[in-house]
Design a protein around this nucleic acid. Structure first.
Lengths: 208, 208
DNA sequence: CCATGTCGATACCGTAGTCGGCGGCGCAGG
DNA sequence: CCTGCGCCGCCGACTACGGTATCGACATGG
């Protein structure tokens, strides 16, 4: 290990970054070369340092992790990014992997799993731990929501009746009903309220 | 500083505990005496070590932080506990402070804020940073939801119609309608779906 | 070309949400 | 003490909205 793995760490929690730094400092073959607190910094720091591996949180201010990931991969198709998040649901994980993530870890992971994943990803492997893979697999057969459906659901979540959603999106209320029907079928929800909580749990929607 | 502040650190994220440990290790007047990963460990470790200050996450497996906090304070009314959480909404913060927390910090806090709060709390002060205080103050005039109302809302969140909520709670459907009316008034929600998302945001309900 | 997403409609029924009113229980303050 | 007051529970009637079913249509893109 003459040349250590150069790691970029992106997380809006300063405490979490300290934790990551402390853990990686104990590994002889790893070195944190830069840290950032939001998506914009992630893109800038990646361009500047070209790290071997980037640890990236989702849910950050200014620019979310998925968008940052896409931009990083657009600038450097070889970029190796491991998403390290609290919990996003299977939909977010799928979105991250589709956007080119090489790993998807939860912050509840063991430290050994983190350093292990960094080494595997640096070696060119894609690695998603078993627990997360199973989560994803459990919903692999489910049709994902379309962008439009998510848009509709986001408005429903904040209490808009169908008619107002329709106005907002400049379509008829009947169209919204059709969308809601499809959404509830896909999510196997009993009603619109249930659809929203399922979508939150699975990561199609975020709070706020 | 001949006798350092003895700190107990409770968080289900091993990475976060590492971060806390790394930060406190740099402070000459602080010392982490034990770490735990859930509420039950929190209670046991507090009884065993009698730390000066306990850092406590909410949202942990086995026993949540609020219940652990209550048990710790029941065993030792002098226990100084700082809640350190991702974000729970004002309702959770209020619940924590009512349960006897001496501080309420977000994991997004600056490191300086954490060590500062530990020193203040150890000195006997109650300390809640400005950002959080304002959050709480913004809803101080709002009437909180009753236990019963939360119970109703929890069932509504998973798609139960009023009639089934009524059966579940062995009351009439009209009673549930009354509860829902009161809930929506208190939360200023437009409908039941909105009520659920507001309750999630403010920490009256948790996902899952 | 055909699958998919988007949009639209009609009609029916059940549920949600509003309004106003009623009663009992337990607890803190005059 | 008993008087509120808050919480819980209950009722009926009315209106609005949600959810179902079953259609049809058009554009895009693999």
């Amino acid at each position: 290990m003459n040349t250590p793995i150069r790691v970029l760490s992106i997380d809006d929690h300063q405490l979490m970054r300290e934790g990551i730094a402390a853990v990686l400092a104990r590994e002889a073959d790893m070195q944190v070369v830069a840290e950032g607190a939001d998506g914009e910094q992630a893109v800038a720091l990646h361009a500047q340092h070209r790290p071997d591996v980037t640890l990236l949180d989702l849910q950050m201010p200014r620019m979310n992790g998925i968008d940052a990931l896409r931009l990083i991969r657009a600038q450097d198709a070889q970029a190796q990014v491991i998403v390290l998040t609290t919990y996003g649901g299977d939909a977010q994980a799928v979105a991250a992997l589709k956007a080119g993530a090489s790993g998807y870890l939860l912050k509840t992971s063991l430290l050994s799993e983190l350093v292990d994943t960094i080494r595997r990803v640096h070696a060119g492997q894609r690695y998603v731990p078993a627990a997360m893979s199973m989560q994803i697999a459990a919903h692999a057969a489910d049709e994902p929501l379309t962008q439009r459906e998510i848009e509709v659901l986001r408005l429903v979540a904040v209490g808009y009746p169908n008619k107002q959603v329709a106005n907002q999106l400049s379509v008829s209320a009947e169209t919204i009903k059709t969308h809601m029907k499809n959404i509830m079928d896909k999510l196997r929800a009993k009603d619109r309220t249930h659809a929203v909580t399922i979508a939150l749990n699975r990561g199609f929607l975020q709070l706020q």
